[in-house]
Simulated assay, not measured.
Amino acid sequence: MTSRPVSLRDIAEKLGISVKTVSGALNNNSIRMSEETRERIRTLADEMGYQPNEIARGMRAGVMPIVGLLADGLVTQPFATEILRQFDNLLRSQGLTVIVTSIHSGEHTEKSINELRRLMPQQIVYASMFHQAIDLPEAVRRQISLMLNCFDIHGEIPSLVPDEEFAGYEAATFLLDGGRKRIAYLDLPGLIAGSLRAAGFRRAMSERGETVRNDWLMPATKGALYSDRARSLVKATIEAWFSASEAPDGIICGNDRVAMEVYNSLRRVGRIIPDDVAIISFDNQVDIARRLDPPLTTMALPHREIGRFAGDIVTGRKPIPQGLARIPFRLVERSST
């Protein structure tokens, strides 16, 4: 038979004092007592194996040791779930539990928040599967304390986002430092990440006095938005670039999936990586980057860092950022450059 948990009343009866006094000693409230009494109560509680009732404590305080997470498509992207994993690990180490509610493209956000509120979370955080601008109703914005991998278009909610522009700058600088001068770029159309990374590429080239050719900055897919369903332009673009009198000696790819297509297309036109052309990309999807031949140099998305940083903010170990906090990528150098 399972023994019942030790209660405050059990401790009080053992010491011959009131339950109120025991509660005051164990819950650090303002009830007056001597330090000797307080220590005696705590020592006996430890000896008896007393475990505080977190639900009851939360009910009294109006909050529970819970943080709500609105996951906008996050659980559908294997590499983006690293945000959740790191966030959850850090909060668990601080005695907090993450309750995840999955939403899609901001739909049903208010309903999901109301459902989370019934659990009395200490905070509610919003996380997205990719870097995007989110337009939330005012009533919802008041409930969210932090946004991850996305930002509030109204500028009211502190947000942690990847530093896309600087990642593009670093990728181009890395190729330039390696002696590549004729650098082309296969962009991700219609995405914030794509436009910011391309801007960083342009800045690095300009600072080095190198020309950005318009016909060497091309979209990876046809249409207004990069997606797996959009028709790829990679094969045709590579064939055009490498049939001309002057070809690129370095290519920046919008992400690792684009790079995989570039590898195949370059082999079709008889070019060797990195001897003829160096390749660098973004994301560090390890199942792709490590298994390509040669393994792909890429800028790793800072999903782990965003998750850990968010955990530090929620637990009070780091200050809340003002507006947007841009988290840097990490260069993972392999054999394609």
Results as ranks from 00 to 15, higher is better:
Tyr226Asn: 00
Gly194Asn: 06
Val269Tyr: 03
Met64Ser: 14
Gln132Trp: 02
Ile17Asn: 01
Glu39Gln: 14
Asp152Ser: 10
Glu36Lys: 11
Leu8Tyr: 12
Leu266Cys: 03
Ala244Pro: 04
Tyr126Leu: 07
Asp187Ala: 12
Pro219Ala: 00
Asp72Leu: 04
Asn255Phe: 07
Ser105Pro: 08
Gly200Ala: 13
Glu115Lys: 09
Phe79Pro: 15
Asn284Glu: 06
Glu207Asp: 15
Leu266Trp: 09
Gly200Cys: 08
Tyr50Asn: 12
Gly209Thr: 06
Arg32Asp: 01
Pro328His: 00
Leu331Ser: 06
Ser159Arg: 07
Phe282Ser: 08
Arg60Thr: 07
Pro78Asp: 00
Ser128Trp: 01
Arg317Ser: 08
Arg330Leu: 10
Leu90Pro: 14
Ala198Leu: 13
Ile113Phe: 10
Gln132Asp: 13
Ser227Tyr: 14
Asp276Ile: 14
Ser23His: 14
Thr21Phe: 09
Ser265Asn: 15
Thr81Leu: 03
Gly68Cys: 10
Ala204Gly: 09
Thr37Ala: 13
Gly307His: 11
Thr43Arg: 14
Glu82Arg: 15
Gly190Leu: 01
Ile99Met: 14
Ile272Phe: 05
Arg142Val: 05
Arg141Ile: 06
Ile153Gly: 01
Pro158Asp: 10
Ala247Cys: 15
Asp249Ser: 11
Tyr169Val: 13
Gly168Leu: 05
Val212Trp: 01
Glu138Leu: 09
Thr76Tyr: 13
Leu225Val: 12
Ile17Lys: 00
Gly307Leu: 04
Thr109Gly: 05
Val125Pro: 09
His154Asn: 06
Ala224Trp: 11
Glu35Thr: 11
His303Trp: 04
Gly106Val: 00
Asp287Gln: 14
Arg9Pro: 02
Leu84Met: 14
Asp163Thr: 04
Val125Tyr: 12
Phe174Arg: 13
Arg229Gln: 15
Gln94Cys: 13
Leu96Cys: 04
Arg203His: 12
Ile313Asn: 08
Gly200Asn: 09
Asn28Gln: 08
Ile153Ser: 08
Asn214Val: 05
Glu47Cys: 04
Gly73Phe: 03
Ala247Trp: 03
Ile113His: 04
Ser93Phe: 05
Leu324Ile: 15
Leu188Trp: 08
Leu176Glu: 02
Thr337Val: 14
Pro321Glu: 13
Leu119Ile: 04
Ala171Asp: 02
Asp249Leu: 03
Thr76Ala: 07
Leu90Ile: 00
Ala300Asn: 07
Tyr50Ser: 11
Asp287Arg: 15
Ser23Asp: 05
Val234Arg: 06
Asp287Glu: 08
Leu186Asp: 03
Ser195Thr: 07
Asn53Gln: 07
Leu15His: 12
Ala224Thr: 11
Arg92Tyr: 05
Pro158Gln: 06
Arg268Trp: 04
Leu90Phe: 03
